[in-house]
Design a protein around this nucleic acid. Sequence first.
DNA 1: GTCTATAAATGGATAGAC
DNA 2: GTCTATCCATTTATAGAC
Lengths: 189, 189
Amino acid sequence: MQNRKQQIVELASDLLRTRGYTDFSYQDLARELGIAKASIHHHFPKKDDLGMALCHWSQDWLDRAFNRIEDNHDHAWDRLEAYLEGSLYWIMQEKKVCPLCAFHHDLNLLPSEMQEAVKELDAFEIQWVRRIFEEGKDRQELHFEGEALANAYLFICTAKGALYFAQSQGPEAFHCSIKQLKRLATGQT
Amino acid sequence: MQNRKQQIVELASDLLRTRGYTDFSYQDLARELGIAKASIHHHFPKKDDLGMALCHWSQDWLDRAFNRIEDNHDHAWDRLEAYLEGSLYWIMQEKKVCPLCAFHHDLNLLPSEMQEAVKELDAFEIQWVRRIFEEGKDRQELHFEGEALANAYLFICTAKGALYFAQSQGPEAFHCSIKQLKRLATGQT
DNA sequence: GTCTATAAATGGATAGAC
DNA sequence: GTCTATCCATTTATAGAC
């Protein structure tokens, strides 16, 4: 069964986003799939093998998320807002963080191969936001001062931090800081 | 030895900030202190007892950090900058996150008593930043648009997110977004 | 591919002696 | 307060049968 392998990754990604990489076990996976622990080891001999598979899964997850946003929204700010609302939805409704945030929680404890993969995924996410800012400026949809990259950093850092506080202080904290971002990115008064 | 108890908390705070709450053990503490695991249990019967002690320690840590900043800097932006530079120093030079960030990593896994404590600590941190913004505006040191609280949220969210990326992308990512913040908070062009 | 069985290490926790 | 000894559960991982 080739699907079993994907089924394991899919479930693992769920536990990763809920509990973090070091805090889910093969036993958790086996229980929920109704199979033996040893069967998971057959597909992923070491946990770090599964960890790398989760890194690749995260790349796909980002691709899908970004493509969906671009398919459903044309205006640059609508795309950025969809990115924000998506993140907030996951954390508030599903109690899950994005896979990258999950990996960051244990970054120092991960094997170096996984750390490198996370760095590349971070860079990929940043570059996507930067591209949206650049295209938005070219099309006169966004009106910000300075470089697109600097504004992209401000945007994505604020978003990550807002999610951090959304968990403990509720969604108002999130919306409050995002409102500021919109003013800056769109050039509204 | 009453100092032993504090010694344990001090070491535990270090491991908390380096590895996270669920990823350090009584064994780690015992090894580094050169005493038996059971001796740690004498001072903190359950790990969550130690966890609550770490929450109280974190409150003291915040108090000390904020007082030091206010003692050494008068201008509102200098205080905010000292807050940022302090955070960056810890993560880059010492590979440690602030205790609140550490607790956030496992927030969903913590007993509710600890979760409540973290929420209050978050609120305390936010209120400190807000006060600095308000005082800065009153003294004409800061020139920002809108409410002090909204600007405080933007500031602290950006700071937390910048630390997130500093870990994986290096300090340039941090400085890049902080430069934007300064422009906004001080009213520079 | 999946199972049972099992290993070896680790984690949190307790009992009771000194 | 600290120790040794011990308990029980969990975690990662392997061996070998079906």
